[in-house]
Design a protein around this nucleic acid. Structure first.
Length: 153
DNA sequence: ACTCCGATTGTT
DNA sequence: ACAATCGGAGTA
């Protein structure tokens, strides 16, 4: 899995940066920890985040890539191509994640997150986030260097 | 009402 | 390189 952290009002790249405040668009980020924040990007792609701090504190993690362990045929039918889950927009489409999932608890179907195997420190890559201009120097992107399921190196 | 632009992707 | 395509935010 590849993720990026967006660290609340003090993070200039966050949808809930202090300069923006709480709006209808980013409302989901202010929800309960462990719920989904789903947003539309570039008018085309839905992106999937997990809210990570207490209600009212807009911290979250953008899920940018993951390894499909099952249901690949279903994902292919949703995607219409073979690139399934490397990239936030692709991943959301492959999993059928859209605005319906806003605020969904991520400990129950249809979409949930479970603890996986630990990533050895030697394999954990910590680097800069993709596609942003503000806060571009912060190293808040993480992935397992052994994994093929990464959006970009 | 009108402009700008973004946590992207697929095609040229 | 660049078009596609939507809605939030700022300005008027």
């Amino acid at each position: 899995m590849e993720v990026e952290a967006y660290e609340g009002p003090d993070d200039p790249a966050s949808h809930a940066a202090a300069s923006i405040g709480r709006t209808r668009r980013n409302e989901g980020l202010f929800g309960l920890p462990g719920t989904a924040y789903v947003h539309l990007n570039y008018g085309i792609h839905w992106c999937f985040n997990a809210v990570t701090d207490v209600e009212g504190s807009p911290h979250g993690v953008l899920i940018r890539a993951l390894e499909p362990l099952s249901g690949e045929a279903h994902m292919r039918s949703r995607r219409g191509r073979d690139e399934l889950t490397n990239g936030p927009g692709r991943l959301a489409q492959a999993l059928g994640i859209g605005p319906d999932l806003q605020g969904h608890r991520l400990d129950e179907p249809p979409v949930w997150i479970e603890r996986g195997l630990p990533v050895p420190a030697a394999s954990l890559v910590t680097t800069t986030r993709i596609g942003i201009t503000k806060g571009a120097e912060l190293r808040l992107r993480f992935y397992d260097s052994r994994s093929r399921w990464v959006s970009r190196r």
